[in-house]
Computed example of a mutant assay.
Amino acid sequence: MPNNTRFPDYALADVTDVTAPAQLRALASPLRNAILELLLERAATVSELALALGRPKSTVAHHVSALADAQLLKVVRTRRVRAIEERYYGRTARIFRVGPVSPTDSPATPYCTNDLATAAAESAPAHQADELSSIVRHVRIPREQAREFWARVLELANDYAQLPREGDVVYGFAAGLYPTDHPALPEAEPAAGDPH
């Protein structure tokens, strides 16, 4: 039975807008995103993160330092082990919402990874094994309604991140909302006798 009723096990903001180029560059790294994802469960040391990721401790320490410099991670507690003080790192927010990028930055250089492309690559084995659940829908709606719907999706993603940690398989949850060139029907003609 899990001993946490709320994840992660430290205080953090719900949403932080990320606009600084250093923050955006930090989020563009798949390894840094994996670190941030792990820290949604609980605070962890560099050693614990390195073990979970199967990467050298020095590599993980470098990326943790970059995330901390970008104010996406912080030390949430310490513990004395023999003569060494272990630092436990945590996120500064549950959700990092990418805000407008400064016009002085090069638009040709994407700062953020395409999470749907990452999910597509990650889900390929599940697709081959017929264990993938996915759905795509296209709806013609106003931009404000799309923003409101996305806020609901973020709430659902946060609920997903709060599920008790049990079992032996890590399941991915991906969502995206994006404008398309998908065809749309014209406005419906009023039916005969319809006053509208």
Rank of each mutant, 00 (worst) to 15 (best):
M1I: 11
L12K: 08
L12C: 13
V15K: 06
T16C: 06
A20M: 05
L31T: 12
A34H: 10
A34L: 09
A34T: 07
I35V: 15
I35Y: 05
L36T: 02
L36R: 04
L38V: 01
L39M: 06
E41F: 02
R42Y: 02
A44I: 01
V46E: 01
R55K: 15
R55I: 05
A61Y: 07
A61I: 00
A66D: 09
A68V: 02
R79E: 15
R80I: 14
I84V: 13
Y88K: 00
Y89E: 01
R94S: 13
R97A: 10
V98A: 14
V101I: 15
P103N: 11
S106C: 10
A108V: 02
A108I: 03
N114F: 10
A117V: 09
A117W: 08
A124G: 02
H127L: 14
H127A: 15
Q128V: 14
E131L: 15
R140E: 09
R143K: 09
Q145L: 14
Q145D: 14
A151W: 03
R152S: 03
R152F: 01
E155I: 02
E155R: 07
L156R: 04
N158Y: 12
D159Q: 14
D159K: 10
A161E: 02
A161P: 07
A161V: 04
D168V: 11
D168T: 15
F173M: 07
D181L: 13
A184F: 05
A184D: 05
A184K: 08
L185Q: 12
E187K: 12
P195H: 08
H196I: 08
